[in-house]
Amino acid sequence: MEARIVNKGQLPELLDKLAKDCDLIAPVKEETTTLFRKISGAKDAFLEYNNSDISPKGCFLPQNEKTFSYTYTGDSLEIVKPEGAKKTVLFGTRPCDIKAITTLDPVFEGVKFGDEYYSSKRENTVIIGLSCSKVLSTCFCYAFGGGPCDGTGSDLLFTEIGDKYYVEINTDKGKALVDTYSQIFSSQGADQLAKGKEELAQKLSGEFIRKVDLTGVKEVLDGNFELPYWDGDNYKKCIGCGTCTYVCPTCHCFDIFDYTTGDFTGDRIRCWDSCMYPEYTLMAGGHNPRPTRKERVRNRFMHKLKYHLDRYDMVGCVGCGRCVKKCPVNIDITKIINDLKEVAQNA
C-alpha cells in the first residue's frame, strides 16, 4: 500500500483547492453541534471533533431528496430528473462512519435493485477518512472489526501524527486525488510515519471501555422471534422518538411521497423515515404489524443484529455510539448485545 505525508500547515491549502475544484463536504461546528456540511474552504472545517452529532450518511442518502419533478400538461406528463451528482470530496470522516457507508452500499447498490441516486453520489465522491485521536466512553467500533485507525472503505486515510498527516492510499480514486495535488502530498519519510500510525492504533485499541461481545447473539435471535427478553424494560422506557434512527450512520429507511407545487406540478421526494414511528408500518387498511413500541424496539435491534447479517453478511451496527449517547432514556445497544449474549448462554 502506498502512503504519503501532508504537513499540517499545508492542509488548509489542500482544502481550499478541493473546495474550489469540487464540492467539499467536511465537519463543521454549528453552535454546540458538529455536522457535515458543504464548505467553501479550510476556514469552515472543524477537525478537532471526536464523533459528529450526525453522521455523514446524508452525503449519499440525504434526509430529503428530490427524485424527480413532474408537470402534467393536459395530454402528457413531463418528468424531469435531477442532474447526476457533482464531483465531491468527503473529508474528515471517522473510520466508524466510513464503515457505515460500506454497510449501506449493498442496500443501494445491489445487483438486482440499484439505486441511481445513491450510486451517482457514491461514484462521484472521494472519501477521505481521518483516524480518531481519542476513544470515547460510548465508542465500541472494535466489536465489529473496526478500529480508530481503520481505513476500510476510505479512498484515503489521514492519520494525525505530530505536525504531519500520514496518508494511506487505499484506492485508485484516492491515488488520482493524490496525483492531482501531488505538490501537497510528499512521499518522503512516509515509511517512518507508518510505525507511528501503528503505535497510535495499538494505543487507542486498548482504550475502549465498553466490553461488547456478539458471541451467540445472532444465533439466539435466529430461532427466537418472540424472545421473552423483549418484554423487559427496553420497550417500556422507549419514548418512541426517532433519535436513534436519525443519528445512526447505518439506518437507511425512507419514505416516498409527492410534494405538490401547483395543481399540475410537483416533486417526488424521498426522505428519511424511522421504524420507531407508529405510522411506519401502518397499512392502508389500518392494520399495523408493529402495533406497539415492543415490536418497534425489537425490530430496530433485530435489524442491526440479525436482518442486515442475513441479507448482506454484515452487522448493521458499526459501534459509533451515537444512539447510546443521544437516547433520551439511555437505551443502550451494547447492553442489549450483552444481555442477549447472556440469554444465549443460559439457553
Binding site: G240, C241, G242, V247
Partner: peptide, 16 residues
Amino acid sequence: DKQFSRCLRCYACRNV
C-alpha cells in the same frame, strides 16, 4: 432559523 434548520424532526421533544 439557524436553530430550526438543524432540526431532524425526530420528535424526541414531543415524545418526552
